[in-house]
Structure formats: structure tokens, C-alpha cells
Nucleic acid binder design. Structure first.
Length: 200
DNA sequence: AAAAAGATGTGCT
DNA sequence: GCACATCTTTTTC
């Protein structure tokens, strides 16, 4: 198995495209975090798009504020926000100043599973990264990383995968929101056990 | 200053 | 499957 840190990193131009496209194409990419000189993480299996316009569910819908300002930064910026005493992570998309991002909802763990279990204080790996806040906790991502540049940062990044996913991709309504629920902006890998929400 | 909401997760049934 | 813990931001008084 290749060393994760030597893989090709996703470029800024990848993120500087339509948010729904970025969300769909992030599936299968590798989200990696360096913890104690070791790269840990895995393959992204679930994302949600939050659009710059006409999307009332997005944090950017009411404009730029001190708490969501990194969402209006350059594409490739990390936007971490607090929710219910936990954290969720997004990668900013499209042009700077628009307020668009993709929420990373779930990852299939590949490297450093023991490290992620320790971060989560778990021994069972079935609920290790099944949801946005679980993923953040497993990868030790919190508010202190809000606003960092995912294109250049030494300790976190999204990387290309030499073995792309061999499964269908499904679009559905986004989870946990009360507005714009009908927009099919959630993308996930069909039948992947690490996807959040209802089992089939 | 106080209170409620929120892109959630856990533990228990 | 469902109740509730938990805390930051935002809104309201």
C-alpha cells in the first residue's frame, strides 16, 4: 500500500467548479490527516453540497459573519463549524466570496484505524466515521483548524485515489436540515456501510 | 444578559 | 427507533 502523504493532492482548480459537481466527484477521494507523523484517514463516501445562491439551508444564506467567514474564502479552504457540542468540516468551493462549500459527511477508514478509534474513544469500528461530526472527531479536526488552506496545509488534505470506487453513486435530499430539503444535493456511495443515515 | 436553535451522536429499548 | 445530552452562535429581551 502506498504512503498516503506521497499521493497527488487535489488542486485548487478542482474546488473552483460548481459545488454539486465537486461534491459528487469528492466521493472516492482520500481525506488524510497527519497525527504524530502518521497519515490517517480513508476514502470519502458521503458528501453534501451547500450552494452559494437560493440555498436557505446553507450557513452562507444570511451573508458573511464572523463565524462563517472562512466559507467565503478561497476554494480549498477548510470551514469547520460547531453543532450540538461537536464539529463538522467542509471544503470551500467555487470562487472566493460566494459562500459555497461541500460538507464531508462520511469516510471509509483505511489508514490509522487504531488512531481514529483512540480519538473517538471507541473500540468498535462500525460507528467510527459514520457522520460528519464522527469524521471530525476521528481525524482530530476542530475549530482551531477553521480557515486553513487544504491545498497547502502540512497536516491535512484531500488526495487522488489510484483505485476509484467500484459502485453506483446516489443523490438524495440532505440530512438534518429544515429548509430546501427537496434539493438532491447529498451524494453517497451505494451500499457502503460507512454512509450515515438509514440502512436499506 | 439570557435563551433557543442547530448541516449531530450516543445509549438504551 | 427514539429520547436526550451537550455547547457555540445567534437572536431576543
Amino acid at each position: 500500500m502506498k504512503i498516503p502523504g506521497r499521493r497527488l493532492r487535489i488542486s485548487r482548480s478542482f474546488y473552483n467548479r460548481a459545488t454539486a459537481t465537486v461534491a459528487r466527484e469528492l466521493l472516492g477521494k482520500l481525506l488524510l490527516r497527519r497525527i504524530d507523523h502518521q497519515w490517517v484517514g480513508g476514502q470519502i463516501v458521503e458528501t453534501e453540497a451547500y450552494l452559494p445562491d437560493d440555498d436557505l439551508a446553507s450557513h452562507s444564506a444570511r451573508g458573511c459573519t464572523p463565524s462563517n467567514r472562512s466559507m467565503f474564502d478561497r476554494p480549498g479552504t477548510l470551514y469547520v463549524y460547531p453543532i450540538h457540542a461537536k464539529y463538522c468540516m467542509n471544503v470551500v468551493t467555487e470562487a472566493k466570496g460566494l459562500g459555497a462549500a461541500v460538507l464531508i459527511r462520511a469516510v471509509e477508514p483505511i489508514w490509522g484505524i487504531d488512531v481514529m478509534c483512540a480519538n473517538r474513544r471507541l473500540t468498535q469500528k462500525n460507528r467510527l466515521t459514520r457522520g460528519p461530526a464522527m469524521t471530525c472527531q476521528a481525524l482530530a479536526v476542530d475549530r482551531t483548524m477553521d480557515g486553513i488552506d487544504m491545498i497547502r496545509h502540512d497536516e491535512i488534505g484531500v488526495f487522488h485515489n489510484v483505485s476509484p470506487i467500484d459502485a453506483d453513486i446516489i443523490a438524495s435530499g440532505r440530512i438534518g436540515i429544515s429548509k430546501s430539503q427537496l434539493l438532491p444535493l447529498r451524494y453517497f456511495v451505494k451500499d457502503n456501510p460507512y454512509v450515515s443515515g438509514r440502512r436499506k
